[in-house]
Nucleic acid binder design. Structure first.
Lengths: 333, 333
DNA sequence: GCTATAAATGAAAGCGCTTACATTTTAAAT
DNA sequence: ATTTAAAATGTAAGCGCTTTCATTTATAGC
């Protein structure tokens, strides 16, 4: 592998000059620039990015933390980030935290150790204090789907409460009066917010919230099934169920079928996230659209603007969810 | 951020000694080792991995190329690789190639430029020659789901032909005589092999292969629907369809429902891959299990063994697909 | 043509580590 | 105690770049 030294030799200039044409930040006369370019081409020169990083204290890579590497939600998020960053020649290092405090922290520290210029974090388990500490340490980062007031400009988020509201309101408008709810893990911020939205919608419609109609799931498919069973045990009269994500909604539909309950004629189901599979299910799932691709892109743009000094990028931090009506929800019989 | 120099000063030893205890490859007396460890702890020292890489010519990171960052198949593959590598303190840099020759090549070169110690590639579009050239260049790599005879030990793969065979044989055993097939893009090796297996199973059962019963899709959900339409146009009498992946099978089922055709009583459907959503569909999808998680893990192990000199790892390169019978396929009426 | 200034280039000091080689310390053997 | 070999530690030269500062070269004004 050719080094900058060989290029400089072949071109008959100094190292510094070669470096200058590579980074073209300083003026270099056209004539020498051509010489250098020619030499580089001739040698098939590729700068050593490790050396560049060490010398410049810039790694040109941004670290990403997701909960899981699989799953449609994080897949879209990663795609969005990588697509956006790649266009600017930045690299993406992805790690997963598995919604576990210890592992999230380890992943973040790893990314910092790798000298990422910035981090994009979908951090669920780590404390606010830790995140605030990161800022104190001078780490550049942006949060996806998490809100911390003190650093709210670093938070790219969806109005989850509004989403929960929309889902529930939709069913109420269809005439449902007994609504069951399957929540995400209550320690997760988004799960709380979605549930709040649900409660708000009930309140606005003068329907009383009933604990027996609310099950706490874990956002996994299987807990949709578990939740439905639990609900039928505790409160058999509901006519619909709103789920805090699509996976659980899918679990509900599957379980309902096993129980011989028809969706939607006997039970309306609404999800949340609008993952790609929501439209492949039968019946197709009414859900709340989570523009995760757009949000991932925005997070990347935030970094490009703040860290890599790209100007002219408009940053928007709060995204609005939209109701996506499909076949799984109909008027109350 | 503390550097090795400050540690050495605090501990009252030389740089070299500090480096030695970090890498503990050379003997260091217990006493000094303790001193150094203490100093490191006191300073909260974290080695600068960039500097380490530059000096040792080892980045401790392995590059991964997938077709897409999203999608259940690649998600599982990435998870497997990251899980395995992380345990050994190695890092994973993930890029996507979008099944496009140019982009795959760019991604691979990027990873090489990033000084990855090794590459794990799910390369579909790039030529055999290019891959062989990589070996000549001295790049360490392993291929997933691709077979090139000259470097077969570097190929972690599924017996796709056997998979195609099993799927088709399953339907034949159920009494089906008119079998439609929806293939993946024929330029992809796995698509070819799966189709070969299908043909072989037909031949073994003395059923003639019919071009009018074979549609070339693109592995996307939508081409399942397109394929079914095309098939009904060209050869209306078939009783089942085997699809080269689950996404297309899902598309087929959805379209069948729209057309008022019942699955499985009027049309049996079989997929391939056993992605997680296969069991969420209605009816649940009979498919061929692709042990991608195991294969991803194996690819990572291969690298650990070859590049990072971990011994005692058994490498297996060909995996055997298994038939997973569910509700979408039944006896021919 | 000569000076003053700006533009282009070069020299060299790092960036924070690893590692070959040299030196010192320790332990073993006599 | 003395010699000798082995073990532990230190010295210093890189790894391939970037960047500051000094130097040289070109440009303009008179």
């Amino acid at each position: 592998m050719a080094t900058i030294y060989q290029v400089s030799e072949l071109a008959g200039v100094s190292l510094a000059t070669v470096s200058r044409v590579m980074n073209n930040n300083t003026k270099v006369s056209d004539k020498t620039k051509q010489k250098v370019l020619k030499a580089m081409a001739e040698l098939g020169y590729q700068p050593n990015s490790i050396a560049q990083s060490l010398a410049s204290n810039r790694s040109n890579s941004v670290g990403v933390l997701v909960s899981e590497l699989h799953g449609p939600f994080f897949g879209d998020m990663m795609s969005a980030i990588e697509d956006t960053l790649r266009l600017e020649g930045k690299h993406t290092i992805i790690t997963s935290g598995h919604s576990d405090e210890e592992r999230e922290r380890a992943s973040i520290e790893f990314l910092i150790g790798r000298k990422c210029d910035a981090l994009i974090l979908h951090a669920e388990a780590v404390t606010d204090e830790y995140l605030l500490e990161l800022e104190v340490r001078g780490i550049e980062f942006v949060l996806i789907n998490r809100y911390i007031q003190q650093i709210e400009n670093r938070c790219i988020r969806l109005d989850n409460k509004q989403g929960g509201y929309l889902a529930t309101q939709h069913l109420i408008k269809l005439g449902h009066q007994k609504l069951a709810y399957i929540s995400g893990p209550k320690w997760k911020q988004d799960a709380q917010e979605r549930l709040q939205g649900h409660k708000q919608a009930l309140a606005d419609a003068k329907i009383e919230f009933d604990d027996a109609l609310c099950f706490e799931g874990d956002y996994q498919q299987s807990s949709g099934a578990k939740g439905l069973d639990w609900l039928y045990e505790h409160a058999p009269q509901f006519t619909c169920v709103v789920c805090a994500n699509d996976e659980m909604a899918s679990g509900v539909m599957t379980r309902a079928r096993q129980l011989g309950i028809d969706v939607p004629s006997e039970l309306s189901v609404v999800g949340f996230d609008n993952i790609i599979y929501a439209s492949y299910l039968y019946p197709t799932l009414t859900t709340i659209d989570y523009p995760i691709y757009e949000m991932g892109k925005m997070a990347a743009k935030y970094i490009l603007k703040q860290v890599y000094e790209k100007k002219n990028l408009d940053i928007k931090s709060v995204f609005v969810p939209k109701l996506e009506v499909r076949d799984s929800s109909i008027e109350c019989a």
